[in-house]
């Protein structure tokens, strides 16, 4: 018995792993660009990007590289981690954060300035479930507590998690829902918990929402807007590719791409 048990377990795992390839494909793939050797060349900019922004970023890079001779080497991670790396000397030129707090902290650390910073996107929160029956585009499922686990990003440091808490507070459901919370380290992990069905529903970024399942498009009045700021780091001021990409993010073309991924953009420079 004790021989067959471990064997059986491993086979199950492997067999199931193969079966669920469709889940694998929805996982974020590491950008092949990060694998290119990131030598410092003025033609090549290193950009750190919050993980909620993966999909629009891919499209932005493709469009940008098509019309210029510059190259973007991108690293995706949780903003908190990227911030910690940047203040400890990581060689990034541009930082697209998931909030405004980290770019502010970068200015305080004297490695970037407010004049080289703006809001590139305003995130929108949705409540989503992989189960197409669960949510009827209203908060009813929340009010009835008709679920076992609800995923959200950790509100302690993830802006989308804080927005989710805002919503639960406005609906007066904090105390009731809290025992059912599972927290992801980022909005991407909250999405992964929900997409794999381990959490029945989850607060995710609208830009990540798949077409299947069911959702509630949460009215913006229920949470503080998730303003996401980009900052050109002092490190990148001399890099023409970095400056060009930073400016490109202000263009109408870039704004259209960002908007098409369900972010809001400010049409006037702020």
């Amino acid at each position: 018995m004790k021989l067959t048990l471990p064997f059986y377990g491993i086979f199950l795992l492997i067999a199931f792993g193969l079966q669920s390839c469709d889940f694998v494909s929805t996982q974020r793939e590491a950008s092949s660009a990060t694998k290119k050797m990131a030598q410092t060349s003025p033609m090549r900019a290193r950009v750190a990007v919050a993980s909620n922004f993966i999909n629009p970023m891919k499209e932005l890079i493709a469009a940008f590289e098509k019309q210029t001779s510059y190259q973007i080497v991108v690293s995706y991670s949780a903003s908190g981690k990227l911030y910690a790396q940047i203040i400890n000397g990581a060689p990034f030129h541009v930082f697209l954060s998931a909030d405004q707090a980290k770019p502010s902290a970068i200015v305080e650390n004297n490695i970037g300035t407010n004049s080289n910073r703006f809001t590139y996107a305003i995130g929108q929160l949705v409540l989503w479930s992989a189960n197409s029956q669960l949510i009827d585009n209203s908060p009813k499922v929340l009010e009835q507590l008709n679920f076992r686990k609800i995923a959200l990003a950790n509100p302690k440091f993830a802006p989308y998690g804080q927005a989710a808490v805002d919503v639960l507070e406005k609906l007066d459901l904090m105390a009731k829902s809290k025992p059912k919370w599972v927290m992801g380290e980022s909005i991407s992990q909250a999405f992964q918990f929900t997409a794999s069905g381990n959490a029945d529903l989850g607060f995710i970024s609208f830009s990540q929402k798949p077409n299947h399942g069911s959702y509630w498009a949460i009215p913006e009045s229920l949470y503080t807007p998730i303003k996401q700021d980009v900052i050109l780091l002092d490190n990148g001021k001399e890099n023409i590719a970095a400056v060009a990409f930073f400016e490109y993010l202000k263009s109408n073309e870039a704004k259209n791409i960002i908007q098409s991924h369900h972010y809001k953009v400010a049409r006037k420079a702020n």
């Binding site: 795992l13 199931f16 669920s20 076992r148 599972v182 794999s196 069905g197 381990n198 959490a199």
Partner: peptide, 26 residues
């Protein structure tokens, strides 16, 4: 693998649900 296997669509998850233990992740 554990997340997938113990999830609602995984073999372990389906077993624990049948046994009335619920799901094991979290």
């Amino acid at each position: 693998y554990l997340l997938i296997a113990m999830g609602p669509n995984g073999p372990v998850g389906q077993l624990t649900e049948k046994l009335g233990l619920g799901l094991l992740p979290f």
